[in-house]
């Protein structure tokens, strides 16, 4: 069973390497942000698999933290790309 989990971890890390290719090459800025968002989501599964392989449940706290950070990063980047500012203060008109 442990070999099965190791193989899953290796396949997930290979797909993260493919995300890094899109992150570096991506022709536009939204491509790079999309790749970064997918990397954040995939990093959650890497942390879950690592906690399973190491055998402790302490790493599972990181899952919620990474989910929140990845979502806030995506929202901030998309507001920045759309308007050029992150916080909408209402005095830009």
């Amino acid at each position: 069973m442990m070999i099965f989990f190791w193989i899953s971890l290796i396949v997930i890390v290979i797909s993260m390497a493919l995300f890094v290719y899109r992150l570096i090459k991506g022709p536009t800025a939204p491509d790079r942000v999309i790749a970064l968002d997918a990397m954040g989501v995939t990093l959650i599964s890497v942390v879950a698999l690592l906690s399973l392989l190491v055998g402790t449940s302490f790493y599972l706290e990181i899952i919620l933290l990474l989910a929140i950070l990845s979502f806030i990063g995506t929202v901030a980047f998309s507001k920045f790309i759309e308007k050029g500012e992150i916080f909408d203060r209402g005095d830009s008109d």
């Binding site: 939204p30 999309i34 990845s70 998309s78």
Partner: peptide, 17 residues
């Protein structure tokens, strides 16, 4: 949490693009 936030993030990103 992931099921609530991931579609919202993807939609905001393609709209910004």
């Amino acid at each position: 949490f992931l099921f609530i936030t991931a579609p919202v993030g993807g939609h905001m990103m393609s709209r910004a693009a």
